[in-house]
């Protein structure tokens, strides 16, 4: 789409959408939201950028290699956090039983592995949405 108004508004609005997505992911354990919804918002921001600026510019912003690393990294990070539970003497993906830092309920830094897992899920969902969209519209 080659429209000045759309391009200007998208350039203004995308950072705020991404900030909102990151906020939803990081506050997943104390407010509505979580990895899936925040990742969907983050992915939607990049899809919006692709729709208005075209695939070439968008894949410069988020190259295929980076999103590949993010995809595999999200799931590997999830498994790594799960294995930390075994190392610290609990079961796979144990939270309180493995003695993680629980903190006080309602604080940002609390709830043990829940924020770590939420960040992994958010990265995974965002990169998956972007890669699916880019792969499907890649056909010329």
């Amino acid at each position: 789409m080659d429209d000045l108004i759309v391009k200007t508004i998208i350039r203004l609005i995308v950072p705020f959408i991404q900030l909102y997505g990151i906020f939803i992911i990081l506050h997943g354990h104390i407010s509505p939201g979580g990895g899936f919804s925040g990742g969907a918002v983050l992915g939607a921001s990049i899809i919006l950028y692709t729709l208005s600026f075209g695939l070439k510019k968008a894949s410069k912003k988020l190259p295929h290699k980076v999103s590949q690393v993010m995809e595999s990294g999200g799931i590997l990070w999830y498994m790594f956090v799960g294995l930390l539970g075994i190392i610290f003497g609990g079961s796979f993906l144990a939270n309180k039983g493995a003695g993680f830092f629980m903190g006080e309920a309602g604080n940002l830094l609390s709830a043990g592995i829940i924020p770590l897992l939420t960040i992994g899920i958010g990265i995974k969902v965002a990169s998956t949405m972007v890669t699916l969209f880019h792969t499907i519209i890649e056909e010329d």
Partner: peptide, 12 residues
């Protein structure tokens, strides 16, 4: 889990 969001606690 000391997480107020019950759904996040259930799924993670």
């Amino acid at each position: 889990t000391s997480a107020p969001n019950v759904i996040a606690a259930v799924i993670t």
